[in-house]
């Protein structure tokens, strides 16, 4: 069981209260009409799958209901940091 710190509730909560919501910091093209199909498909479907630290969106669905971002190591499954949605990715040692 992962304990995840919700940055809104400011408490450590069990993983069961959260939903994973995909890769964080995926920027939507500012003018979707101007990008070609390949770029749009890349925005919609292509995601990183690294071995190491990933930035992910999580939602505290059974608590405050808010989305936030988390840095998780895909090998150890350890949550290294959580931070509010919209904030830039913090620097952490993996």
């Amino acid at each position: 069981m992962l304990l995840i710190r919700c940055p809104v509730c400011a408490m450590d909560r069990p993983e069961l209260e959260f939903r994973h919501a995909g890769q964080a910091h995926v920027a939507r093209p500012a003018d979707p009409g101007a990008v070609d199909d390949a770029a749009w498909a890349a925005y919609l479907y292509l995601r990183d799958n690294p071995k190491g630290v990933v930035a992910e969106r999580w939602r505290h669905v059974h608590g405050c209901g808010r989305f936030f971002n988390a840095l998780r190591h895909t090998v150890s499954d350890r949550i290294l940091a959580t931070y509010p949605a919209g904030a830039s990715r913090p620097e952490v040692a993996p």
Binding site: C9, M11, R13, L16, E17, H62, G63, C64
Partner: peptide
Amino acid sequence: VAVTPLSEIA
């Protein structure tokens, strides 16, 4: 105060 599931009930 904590908003949390009690067993599986909000």
